[in-house]
């Protein structure tokens, strides 16, 4: 006979903060604080306890319809199960890469997956150009095609040490270690102590460290 233990109702995809804290740079209290944030994000449009792409875009841009290549890629990487939504466990584990204390190797690998648009295991020249054009478009910057080609060529030849027309993970790692500012976008200082940055979340935190 089974034993039914009554617990407060949690959203689908909810995971034990102790487990998530053990797997990520977050403390248990910080995971609890992230849950408060997650609840808010995941109920902004659809009240189903999961973050849909429109909810992600709404939080990021204050506009649920804003299309952006990089936001799409970040969402897709957060959506580990590839089911079109981000659950709580995916949210915490993915944000963990952006924690200041996350290993640099992990940040480098995450950035590689982000920029490997077609998931071929390589960053291709065409992908790099596509990302540069997307950035120029989102920033309302106009550069001639010749200038864009020159920027892409120069960067690509610096990173593609083997000269085979694609950047592999090893080349990417070496390139980033030489140019560490390239992964500054992989660190969110806010995550260092989210319970201090968002004290209101602590009020409803269930777990004390």
């Amino acid at each position: 006979m089974g034993c039914y233990c009554s617990k407060p109702e949690k959203t689908p995809g909810y995971e034990d903060p102790v487990v998530l804290a053990a797997e990520t740079p977050f403390t248990v209290s910080e995971v609890e604080a992230l849950y408060e944030l997650f609840k808010k994000l995941s109920s902004s449009i659809y009240d189903d306890g999961l973050i849909h792409k429109e909810e992600f875009q709404l939080a990021l841009f204050r506009n649920q319809n804003k299309k952006n290549l990089f936001a799409d890629r970040i969402f897709d990487l957060f959506d580990v199960k590839r089911n079109g939504v981000i659950d709580f466990g995916e949210f915490v584990r993915s944000l963990g890469f952006f924690h200041p204390n996350a290993p640099v190797e992990d940040k480098i690998a995450f950035a590689f997956r982000l920029y490997d648009l077609r998931q071929t295991g390589f960053i291709e020249r065409e992908e790099l150009k596509e990302m540069v054009l997307a950035l120029l478009h989102e920033s309302d910057l106009l550069l001639s095609d010749d200038v864009v080609e020159a920027i892409v060529d120069k960067t690509f030849s610096d990173a593609d040490k083997k000269g085979d027309g694609r950047i592999d993970q090893q080349e990417w790692k070496e390139y980033v270690l030489k140019h560490p500012t390239l992964i500054k976008n992989m660190t969110l200082p806010y995550l260092k102590d989210i319970t201090l940055a968002f004290p209101s979340f602590v009020m409803s935190s269930e777990v004390e460290d």
Partner: peptide, 25 residues
């Protein structure tokens, strides 16, 4: 000079990486 820009540096400035926006109350 634009041609001396690093393409990866450029794309890392996308506003999509402002994930702190997710934390705004």
């Amino acid at each position: 000079k634009p041609t001396s820009m690093n393409a990866f540096e450029l794309i890392s400035r996308s506003q999509s990486f402002n994930l702190e926006n997710l934390f705004e109350k």
